[in-house]
Design a protein around this nucleic acid. Structure first.
Lengths: 166, 166
DNA sequence: GATGCTATTGCATCTTGATGCATTTGGCGA
DNA sequence: TCGCCAAATGCATCAAGATGCAATAGCATC
């Protein structure tokens, strides 16, 4: 796999890796990579679409989505879920981390892999299941919300999932 | 809160609970509850919409979605995420459980709360965060997929999240 | 039984993406 | 440099929901 810890310069390999797999280096992909290279931390796919549109208003969203999918398959990106619940990409390399989201106030926090390590090990041992921590988003209630009011108030965010149907 | 362990008969309380909160008992809600009462285990919202349509082809999807949201707020339903990744409702009372999903083969398994109890306790202790296990879906790779081929094959399902924007 | 207030419905529209297909175009081989 | 062919793009369309709004209709009261 291509990226395994290099700093941002790794984008320059993408072109070669694509070619070596019989895939193509197109102007659209180049632009999307430029946008990603100028990005750090979390970005939602629609943010990326917007940023591409700033550079080229002709940008087709589906091309962007497909490219993001491809880059994730190749290991240059990872996605998880932001505070607002939408798909969110992590531009690699970045420290792996999961997320906690409060169902009441909607805030979210990053979680070090080690915080979940017991779970990870337990599932590994008992089921041979290896957890993808960076994809993990744990919903629940944060301290503040659980202490603030004990009334069963309405959850502010109802998370739902969608999947790429293949 | 209304439901706290009663068997299916608890649906009959819904009407009264709605009224006591100044909410209304409408034919549409009645039908949706009939559908839910005839349901066990997991159902996706669109399955519920379909079943409602079987009874009354006039059913408006948004009414169903809104009713499901309401019922979840009232504690009669819980949602999480199915193998195909879409929103999935658990008709309560049901044993609380989380889910594991394999990112490669797409299968999923139920997980007893106790399997996650270390994590739950750790987060409770360190952050006061109380995990909503029944909402938890852990992505990763199942034994079979991790042993079957070590090649970094393409993940078959890209999960994404959406949230009710309030 | 009639009335009025307001919760709910139904409709139209929006959003985030996924997908099928015809057309275009990288880029390898000659 | 040219041509070819599969990969990629762009477009149109679909899908699951969310949401704003005007019209409808529960239901508590009289």
């Amino acid at each position: 796999m291509a990226v395994s810890g290099q700093p941002a310069g790794s984008w320059s390999e993408v072109r070669d890796e694509l070619r070596s797999r019989g895939l193509r280096w197109t102007p659209q992909r180049r632009m999307i990579l430029d946008v990603l290279a100028a990005t750090q931390g979390h970005v939602t796919s629609s943010e990326i679409v917007e940023r591409c549109r700033e550079r080229d208003p002709e940008t087709t969203p589906s091309t962007v989505y497909r490219t993001l999918d491809l880059l994730e398959e190749l290991g240059y990106l990872k996605h998880s879920h932001g505070a607002d619940g939408r798909e969110e990409f992590h531009v690699l390399p970045e420290t792996e981390h999961g997320h906690l989201t409060c169902e009441r106030c909607g805030r979210s926090w990053e979680m070090e892999p080690q915080e979940a390590s017991d779970l990870v090990r337990a599932l590994e041992r008992s089921r041979g299941f290896s957890v993808d921590v960076s994809h993990l988003t744990i919903a629940g209630q944060c301290t503040e919300c659980s202490t603030r009011s004990s009334a069963p108030s309405r959850p502010r965010c109802r998370l739902s999932f969608r999947v790429k149907r293949t």
